[in-house]
């Protein structure tokens, strides 16, 4: 909660400072954005200020968006219907190749949660990726504005021309969704396959999902498949109490965790299938 208040105040002050509000209301198309970012880019210094602005202003606004006040705005989102997930890891690998993720790091991974006593044992699957939060903890702490939430589609991106690799955002992300790319020296994470989505293509993990458990779309469009699924099903997000307002929604997710008091002295095994053997 404390977190959110911070975010609010942050929005107001910065929002006023660079008077970005109405620019945002118009929500320009990608191409405008690109030229915009060109100007910024050439402006060198300009860019980061704008970025910082973007980052901070969007925070407030997408939180509005989440309460469906600004439906004109695009917020890409993913619904993961774990009932359909067979834990096949196709998403993990698709992501690795689509985004040249170095060995030992992951933008996406699939956790297995195995629990119970023979013969009443169950194994469930929890695909993980960046939540493209509406109030991204990572953005709050970024000192350079390299990571920010795109106003045109709510995707949280890292600009690797600006990122200094201070790793503050890695610390701040409750979901361990970020890693320092050893090649570029900048931080990387799932960006909803921005380079595909901006070309009208589904993200790579969605396109290969064997169970069609990953559904992608605009959560602010009531007619989109994601909106419908969320309307028709009960769903959860991960670590709600972190106040990040994720845009990755889970249907029937198994939130069981060994550190959860409920599972004291009961068999539960979480396998992350990546270098980090433990959850954050």
């Amino acid at each position: 909660m404390r977190k959110n208040r911070n975010a609010e105040t942050l929005t107001r002050s910065v929002g006023r400072r660079n008077g970005d509000q109405d620019a945002y209301e118009k929500s320009p198309s990608i191409t405008e954005q690109q030229t915009l970012s060109r100007r910024n880019f050439l402006a060198g210094l300009g860019i980061t200020v704008a970025a910082a602005g973007t980052a901070t202003t969007t925070l407030g606004n997408t939180s509005k968006a989440l309460t469906k006040k600004s439906n004109h705005q695009v917020q890409w989102a993913m619904v993961i219907d774990t009932r359909r997930c067979i834990g096949c890891h196709a998403c993990t690998v698709a992501c690795k190749s689509e985004n040249d993720v170095p060995l030992g790091y992951s933008r996406s991974w699939v956790e297995y949660i195995e629990k119970g006593d023979f013969p009443n044992v169950d194994r469930s699957f929890l695909p993980r990726l960046c939540n493209q939060c509406s109030q991204p903890a990572c953005v709050d702490v970024c000192p350079t504005g390299a990571t920010y939430k795109r106003k045109e589609d709510g995707i949280v991106v890292v600009d690797d021309d600006i990122c200094i690799g201070c790793k503050y955002c890695i610390q701040a992300c409750p979901y361990d969704a970020r890693y320092l790319n050893p090649i570029t020296g900048t931080v990387d994470k799932c960006d909803f396959c921005l380079h595909r989505v901006t070309q009208g293509l589904e993200p790579s993990c969605v396109n290969t999902c064997e169970g069609r458990a990953r559904i992608f779309g605009n959560v602010n469009d009531p007619a989109s498949e994601v909106s419908k699924l969320l309307a028709q099903n009960s769903y959860t997000v991960l670590l709600k109490e972190m106040g990040t307002y994720p845009n990755v929604y889970y249907i029937d997710a198994d939130h069981a965790d060994p550190r959860d008091f409920l599972y004291k002295d009961r068999y539960i095994r979480v396998t992350t299938h990546r270098k980090e053997k433990l959850r954050r």
């Binding site: 198309s29 990608i30 191409t31 695009v74 689509e98 985004n99 040249d100 045109e152 589609d153 380079h195 595909r196 989505v197 901006t198 070309q199 009208g200 293509l201 589904e202 396109n207 992608f216 779309g217 605009n218 469009d221 007619a223 989109s224």
Partner: peptide, 17 residues
């Protein structure tokens, strides 16, 4: 993208990141 498509293309093409 100005008015984002409801249904994105599933695949059949790919763009270099």
């Amino acid at each position: 993208l100005a008015e984002p498509p409801r249904q994105l293309l599933m695949g059949g093409k790919d763009f270099s990141r």
